[in-house]
């Protein structure tokens, strides 16, 4: 465990702030790609760091801090999806068509821009599985556990996602 992490674990807020600055970009990228919604990604990024602060007491240093943090981020984003009272939200809030606009605007510029847009346009389930497998490197077994789907579903969705992405890229 690095000195910075140890100090943060002992309650040093400014040490935690340094950790935030080091890892925020990675966490935000993960949240943005999984959610395809910049506003949500911002909120989730905050949630991840708040949760990390709360859980730091249980970080023992068996893995690198970043690994632990990104794992926590995946859990936060996926359990956010499971919060089913968002169904209630649909009763009152209209579908916001600019959601996809925002995802495109904030994706990194350059060669990867088309892929970011294409990922954002994937159906949510396929998108999550693709991001977790091909971008973040999770195995199907882990994804199945994380998302509460069968391993076979994870594999099928992955291949479906790649096909859709290829179509989008080669348009």
């Amino acid at each position: 465990m690095t000195d910075l992490v140890a100090r943060a674990r002992d309650g040093d807020e400014s040490a935690f702030g340094d950790l935030y600055r080091t890892h925020a970009g990675r966490v935000y990228a993960l949240c943005l790609r999984l959610e395809a919604d910049a506003a949500r990604a911002e909120e989730l990024t905050q949630d991840v760091f708040v949760r990390a602060w709360e859980r730091l007491g249980s970080f023992r240093g068996e893995s690198a801090f970043g690994t632990w943090l990104y794992r926590l981020a995946v859990n936060v984003v996926l359990s956010d999806r499971r919060a089913a009272w968002r169904r209630a939200r649909r009763v009152f809030t209209a579908e916001d068509p600019s959601v996809h606009e925002r995802a495109r605007d904030t994706a990194g510029a350059g060669l990867a821009l088309d892929l970011e847009q294409a990922i954002a346009a994937l159906p949510p389930g396929a998108r999550a599985i693709f991001v977790l497998h091909d971008v973040e490197g999770y195995q199907h077994g882990e994804i199945a556990t994380l998302m509460g789907v069968a391993e076979g579903t994870s594999k099928t969705q992955l291949f479906r996602a790649r096909r859709l992405l290829r179509q989008a890229l080669e348009r």
Partner: peptide, 25 residues
């Protein structure tokens, strides 16, 4: 094979549009 190189080229970090640290803190 179409997707893999594009994935490899994805940036590892995307800085949030604004600094979230004040809110986190």
């Amino acid at each position: 094979t179409a997707v893999a190189p594009a994935v490899a080229a994805l940036p590892e970090r995307i800085e949030p549009p604004r600094d979230l640290w004040p809110d986190v803190r």
